[in-house]
């Protein structure tokens, strides 16, 4: 899923500027699951805004609304009837959702309330971790199912570097050394010979370096 992080309240306030009629828009997909932009979080931010502005003696209107998804226009269309009543749409979706809402409501100020951070997994309740960077050319078959691009701080294809210590990355003791994981995994699965192979330089064109990506599947198109 896409994992995000709520922006600081102060930053949100600053971005809102003078806007006091706010449509707070949640998304019932990834950001709900990772506890950053679902209905509950929409409620929490709305409550924060109301508390703050009430305290400041301001007049305001905060409407809470959570869409099934902010990355599909049909859902985004569901707010058509009342979006215009608000100065801004404060989206709690990932960057994709924020942009797609902005695309749909061209005259509206659409602001992000969430920092989109990574594609990841739930490690345990309340904890998520990055797994994929969407490079567009998966090599997980070569690396024991552990992606060195997403999970090595240096994206080394032929790691580990000399900073690997007790299974942890040199950047901090909380971060696993991806190459330690790869080696462990190769060893467990009896594929250590794979380690001896040098992974060739990567063709990054399939990744973001090749420019914004698009995917078309002709047979699915209308």
């Amino acid at each position: 899923m896409i994992v995000g992080n709520r922006k600081d309240f102060s930053e949100i306030l600053e971005k809102l500027g003078a806007a006091r009629r706010v449509l707070l828009l949640g998304c019932n997909e990834c950001v709900t699951v990772c506890g950053v932009g679902g209905e509950r979080e929409v409620g929490v931010l709305a409550s924060e805004l109301r508390l703050y502005w009430t305290k400041e003696g301001e007049t305001f209107e905060v409407r809470e609304h959570t869409l099934e998804r902010q990355c599909d226009y049909e859902y985004i269309d569901q707010i058509r009837g009342f979006a215009d009543d608000y100065d801004v749409i404060l989206s709690m979706a990932c960057g994709a959702g924020v942009q797609y809402v902005a695309e749909a409501y061209k005259t509206k100020l659409v602001l992000p309330a969430v920092n989109t951070t990574f594609l990841g997994v739930t490690i345990e309740q309340g904890m998520w971790s990055e797994r994929c960077q969407g490079c567009g050319a998966c090599i997980l078959d070569m690396t024991g199912g552990i992606c060195p691009i997403a999970r090595c701080a240096k994206s080394l294809l032929n790691g580990p570097c000399g900073g690997s210590s007790e299974g942890k990355c040199e950047i901090d003791k909380e971060t696993d050394c991806a190459w330690q994981l790869i080696v462990d995994r190769l060893k467990e699965s009896g594929q250590m010979e794979r380690y001896e192979e040098i992974l060739p330089v990567k063709d990054w064109r399939t990744g973001r370096d090749g420019g914004p990506r698009r995917r078309v599947r002709e047979d699915l198109k209308l």
Binding site: R40, G43, V44, S47, E48, R50, L51, T54
Partner: peptide, 11 residues
């Protein structure tokens, strides 16, 4: 008791 209920109480 959820976070929201507490916030709502303050509201």
């Amino acid at each position: 008791v959820d976070v929201l209920l507490i916030l709502r109480a303050f509201e």
